[in-house]
């Protein structure tokens, strides 16, 4: 991972910073400058918002053969989550066993370590999902 590129995306990775097109109401994550549907009509109408962090599992998979960075976590789950704002996010699901995961399950984003550039490099933090407690 490149430090500078990752750093620029921190507001989205830490706080789920997204944008809404006020022409059509669609939400985009990560943020983009122009709406992919409205194009020119969205210029000047893209508004920043932080996603609330909650949504439901749209699809999931269990990873048994992991890249070396994630070796220690396996088996782990990767979920596609339909956020309450309508946008789709993909990340790991934590605090859950593969047998307990269900499509439609409510989940919430939380901050975890995503990886690091080796033992002397930068540590990367970002969102992962966990089941909503209670």
């Amino acid at each position: 991972m490149a430090t500078a590129r990752f750093w620029r995306e921190n507001p989205s990775r830490y706080n789920l910073k997204a944008v809404r097109c006020n022409n059509c109401g669609r939400v985009f994550f990560p943020p983009r400058g122009v709406c992919s549907v409205c194009h020119r009509k969205s210029i000047g109408k893209m508004e920043c918002l932080n996603l609330k962090g909650e949504g439901e599992v749209f699809s999931f998979t269990v990873v048994h053969e992991a890249p070396s960075q994630f070796e220690i976590l396996k088996p782990y789950m990767v979920v596609m989550v339909k956020m309450d704002e309508g946008v789709m996010l993909t990340s790991q699901l934590i605090n859950s066993d593969p047998k307990d995961v269900k499509i439609g399950m409510r989940v919430k984003a939380t901050l975890r370590r995503l990886g690091e550039d080796g033992p002397s490099g930068v540590i990367y933090y970002g969102y992962k999902f966990r089941p909503i407690e209670g």
Binding site: I72, I94, L111, R112, R113, L114
Partner: peptide
């Protein structure tokens, strides 16, 4: 702590 938890994630939570 889980392998992806540290003082920064615990403090943030």
């Amino acid at each position: 702590p889980a392998p992806d938890e540290d003082v920064i994630t615990i403090s943030t939570e």
